[in-house]
């Protein structure tokens, strides 16, 4: 059960990071003033940093929402 919860939290974190990275990519592309390489590199960096943040923030938030169980 605990493993499922952990996996769920991880998937949640990953999903949040991917959503943020895609949003970043789309915005950067839409603005049209960046080179392709800049956008790709920046997207990877954003994905890494947002994963670190979301993996630390989302699991406790989920736990709180489930009443700490």
């Amino acid at each position: 059960m605990a493993e499922i919860k952990t996996r769920g939290a991880l998937l949640g974190s990953l999903a949040a990071s991917v959503v943020l990275t895609i949003s970043f990519y789309l915005l950067a592309t839409a603005l049209g003033r960046y080179g392709k390489l800049d956008i790709y590199m920046a997207s990877i960096y954003v994905l890494v940093l947002s994963m670190i943040v979301s993996a630390s923030v989302i699991p406790p938030l989920l736990k709180k929402r489930q009443g700490g169980s």
Partner: peptide
């Protein structure tokens, strides 16, 4: 700190680099 680093990255990538000249480096 990681969140702050992400915010700083976003700011300089989208806003700072176009408002202030960051050459010779690329915005990224």
């Amino acid at each position: 700190v990681h969140a702050l680093a992400l915010v700083a990255f976003f700011f300089w990538f989208f806003i700072g680099s176009s408002l202030f000249d960051v050459a010779p480096q690329t915005p990224f």
